[in-house]
Simulated scan of single mutants.
Amino acid sequence: MVRLYTKDLNIGYGERLIVKDLTASIPDKQITTIIGANGCGKSTLLKAITRIISHQSGTVILDGENIAKENTKLLAKKMAILPQTPESASGLTVGELVSYGRFPHQTGFGRLTKKDYEVIDWALEVTGTAEFKSRSVDALSGGQRQRVWIAMALAQETEIIFLDEPTTYLDMAHQLEVLELLQKLNREQERTIVMVLHDLNQAARFADYLIALKNGEIVKAGTCEEVITQEVLRDVFHIDALIGRDPRTNKPMCVTYDLVRNAEQEIRQPLLSAAGAL
């Protein structure tokens, strides 16, 4: 089942086009991970789908409706996004930050109701951050802080959660902690998770569906077995990868890799050709 998809999406900044004629579907109640080299349009795509930025042409459809025409508060009840480097006002407690997730559900003077407090406590409990409720967000470790931000997204009570590189700046243990939490939310609560990851093996391990981008276009989309291949990784990342199997999950994994010989020339040649045509 697909509730969310894009059709012929073009996104850019000024005259520079970042994402080009992109048509993609996000499987419902699954974990979708977007991979690709730096600057390929991953974060730009996430921002456009969640309406943080506008797209130049094309459409993003959610539940049969064009999100460009959707009421902002209604849209915030359907999808939440955790940006790459979330920032909160200095001095906020964990409980206060998580309460911000209730904004789309508030009416009148915006006072928190009994239901709001119940949802906040539930989000803290699910993410294992209830013990930090009265603590300042600034006093938490990176992994703890990331779980609190996820709690805020959960408090928003959306069925779809977007995360832009949720493991950035975290050590290996905290990266695994965050990804296992997202997997648990997907499996136990059927939340649709869409995220950008740089680590290919983490993407393969935790994703049900992968979208590989290059220069704002989809090179390959599908299961981990379909996307984590020597051919796709060569095209997307310019690496010669040895693909094996994760002994614990039996999913494909990148065992080792080398730069493709003459990869730099392959990258530069289109630029040189374009310059020569001027």
Rank of each mutant, 00 (worst) to 15 (best):
N215S: 10
L4R: 00
D8R: 04
L4I: 01
A207V: 07
A37K: 06
L259N: 13
E70L: 08
S99A: 14
R248P: 06
F237L: 04
Q56V: 04
E225I: 06
A24M: 08
K47Y: 09
S88K: 11
R145L: 06
A68C: 06
G101M: 06
G95R: 07
I120V: 08
K69R: 01
T127D: 09
A153S: 09
A207R: 09
D246F: 05
Y5R: 02
E159M: 05
L182K: 04
W149P: 02
K214E: 07
K42C: 03
A80D: 07
I193C: 03
E188Q: 12
G244R: 07
L210M: 13
D138K: 07
E165D: 11
A89S: 15
D21K: 06
R51V: 03
G216F: 08
I34C: 02
D116S: 04
H174E: 10
L271A: 13
P270E: 05
G143C: 09
E87A: 14
D21I: 01
Y5P: 05
A173T: 12
Q30F: 11
A37V: 11
L22D: 01
G101K: 05
A139K: 08
D28P: 02
F237Y: 15
G142W: 11
S134P: 10
Q183G: 13
I31G: 10
V19A: 04
N201H: 05
T107M: 15
H105Y: 12
T6V: 05
Y13I: 10
T50Q: 08
I49L: 03
L22Y: 08
L97W: 05
D28A: 00
I61F: 01
I239G: 06
T167H: 06
A130D: 15
S134L: 08
V137H: 02
L197S: 09
T59E: 07
A275Y: 15
F132M: 06
V2R: 00
S99T: 04
V60E: 05
S273H: 14
S134M: 09
V178N: 06
G12L: 07
V236K: 02
V137M: 13
R51I: 02
D246E: 10
A130S: 10
I267M: 13
S54K: 15
I150W: 08
L92E: 09
L17S: 13
T72F: 10
R268Y: 14
A76H: 00
N250C: 12
G128W: 04
L9Q: 01
L112A: 04
Y100Q: 01
L170A: 14
Q230Y: 01
R245C: 07
N10P: 15
L197Y: 12
L17G: 11
E226I: 08
G276I: 12
A76C: 00
I53N: 12
G143F: 09
G36D: 12
T23P: 03
V94P: 12
D28K: 09
L210Q: 03
T127G: 11
L22Q: 10
Q230V: 13
T249H: 10
R102L: 05
L213M: 04
G39K: 15
T85S: 14
